[in-house]
Structure formats: structure tokens, C-alpha cells
Amino acid sequence: MAKARVKVPKSVKKGEVFEVKTLISHKMETGQRKDKKTGKKIPRMIINKFVCTYNGKEVFTSDWHPAISANPYMAFFVKAGESGNLDFTWTDDKGKATKKSAKVTVTG
């Protein structure tokens, strides 16, 4: 299972636009590399989809290609509405999903 990390501010003001930083460990095999011993191409195996929902509603999504570096870093912004959860899902070429959740505390 790929290991994911997420960073959000401890608390935000209502209406504030804050940055969300995410990192997941994954080799993002491009499908272009060759095995040095056998000369065969190493099959592509990447995370191709990243989704972030805020209290159940999609707020930011992304489609990734092999040009995204190994251990993908993705930072983006979210506007503070109500306190609740940010849920993150990374899905790989085999359909395997890695999930992570972060709490958002909205003040004022």
C-alpha cells in the first residue's frame, strides 16, 4: 500500500482560501524503462487519478500521466466553507485506491 501524507492548516477562517499539500509514495513506473538484464520493457504502473472531496463534494481532481515524478507531490487550494473532512483518493493503473482523510476546522 502506498503511503500518503497530507498537510492542511490547523484552523482556517470561513471563506479563507488555504493550500492543501499532498505526497504519496509511489514509483510511478513510466512504461518507457527497460529492465537492464532482460531488455524487456517494464510495464507502466502509475497513479492516474487523484480526487479530493470536501465534506463529500468534489473540490479538486486531477488526471496524471507518466510525466508526473515518482512519489507524486500535489498541492492545490480549497476555500473554507464548513468544518469537516477533506478526503483524498489516489487510484493506480490497476484500480487500487489509497485513501487519506484530513480534518478542517473552520472558525468565525
Binding site: V17, F18, T30, Q32, Y54, K57, E58, V59, F60, T61, S62, D63, W64, H65, P66, A67, I68, S69, P72, Y73, M74, A75, F76, F77, V78, K79, G81
Partner: peptide, 26 residues
Amino acid sequence: NPRPDVATFRFTPASGKARISTRIRL
């Protein structure tokens, strides 16, 4: 790049700001 596609990012009004940071292969 051997395959020029890098990524597509989709925003919503709840994004607040259309800015992304990531790391890519060139």
C-alpha cells in the same frame, strides 16, 4: 517528452484559487 501529456487538473468554485504545484519528469 516521449509522451507529451503531463496532467489535467479540474477545479471548482470551492477551490478558491486555480493554482497547483507538483513535480514532473522532463
